[in-house]
Design a protein around this nucleic acid. Structure first.
Lengths: 225, 225
DNA sequence: CCGTATCCGTGGAGATACTG
DNA sequence: CAGTATCTCCACGGATACGG
């Protein structure tokens, strides 16, 4: 492992997670929870399998992830974040918030996974009717579906489908982001190809918290096809 | 510039600042303020000049730093952070806080610059007598001296000397860190080679805020030679 | 199907010498 | 002082083949 050789907190951190792909592997495990090798590979389009293998080993040695030999229903090894690994969330959050300014409309040669968008929503949005009943939003973007659970002030994303969502959004990721952040209204979203079925009022329940100006701008432009 | 090609906030951020040395250049400009090429080189021991040159150009193109042709007293070009660049501070702060756990006693082959330690103090410490008069702490660690100004609740570091510090600390960086974080008392610090001259009570004025357990442990062990 | 190992082409990183 | 030029070498990316 190449190190900077500096007696500095930041350099030490980068010695551990500064290599290419490393933080993105942590991102996958943080956003998706425990993953199989193939899940990681799928969430990291472009990585070579040998490099993924190497990085996993390095992260294990550094104590950020560990391996679990999963019992029969899965019958494969699962990779988990350790506590040290999970504690990188503030770093990923700061990077994500800062990176919003470089996020433009999805380019055709860019890969996309719905959880890349879904999880960060909890850094940007909050539930402004915390006393109301739990509600769920089903999102179906390009690839896999995700569910947002709105409950007691916070928003929790997860992959998959929920049987009885209060509202379902189907459309492109940028347009759905524009709608969720309130940068475009339901009418414009419909014009941009977002199908909203169910109770529209859930959407007014979630509002940006510390929405960076850049996100507002990005969401607005991204939503216009 | 090699990109991940992912439509994801975090990946976008890493496309810009994920390359080797890039965040450390931002660190230098954030901690030291505007720098000459040589100042950067000195604050980044180990970097090759061509690589520093390349990274500076990339950061300029990305809009994170800009170049100023400084007038006669300096008579050289100064590199400044733009607003976008300065807004990386939360990222560096999160990295620094997380990186504390990997910080052990300074190894002889590790480079050290006092500002690497001094600036992050404002992330860990606060002034618990905000109503008191402004006080200054002169720190003389291995290399260049730094000054901490304690005023109205916050701690502001800068490089250089101050004419009449309330207290002066001379010693090794690890021992001074242990003393400032309260992990070792004045007696132990003296035994570890820290010379304290002036008003000791300034040191009880600054206290850890959200001191991560790791920092406590690190400071304690680092201070024992 | 899961994960590891190997080979190879390219480009970035590092060290050093050198110049406006 | 502020870089540029040159060279070497390893890391990365891609493909593929192999063992569990």
């Amino acid at each position: 492992m190449r190190t900077y050789g500096q007696h500095c907190f930041i350099a030490k951190a980068l010695d551990v997670v500064g290599d290419r792909w490393t933080l993105l592997i942590v991102r996958e495990l943080l956003l998706q929870g425990p993953c199989r090798f193939t899940d990681l590979r799928n969430g990291l389009p472009g990585i070579a399998t040998n490099l993924l293998s190497t990085r996993i080993k390095e992260l294990e040695d550094a104590g950020l992830i560990y391996r679990e030999a999963a019992p029969p229903p899965v019958a494969t090894t699962l990779f988990h974040l350790t506590t040290d690994g999970r504690e990188l969330e503030p770093v990923l959050e700061a990077l994500g918030i800062w990176g919003v300014r470089y996020t433009t409309a999805q380019s055709p040669d860019e890969a996309f996974r719905a959880h890349w968008l879904g999880y960060p929503l909890r850094w940007f949005l909050h539930d402004n009717r915390p006393a109301a009943a739990v509600q769920t939003i089903q999102i179906v973007a390009d690839d896999e579906p995700i569910v947002l659970t709105v409950d007691h002030g916070t928003i929790t994303p997860r992959s998959g489908l929920t049987p009885h969502p209060d509202v379902t959004l189907v459309g492109g990721p940028d347009q759905i982001l524009g709608l969720l952040t309130g940068m475009i209204d339901a009418k414009k979203a419909a014009a941009a190809g977002v199908a909203v079925t169910g109770d529209h009022r859930v959407l007014t329940r979630i509002r940006p918290t510390t929405l960076p100006p850049a996100l507002a701008a990005a969401a607005a432009t991204m939503s216009m096809p």
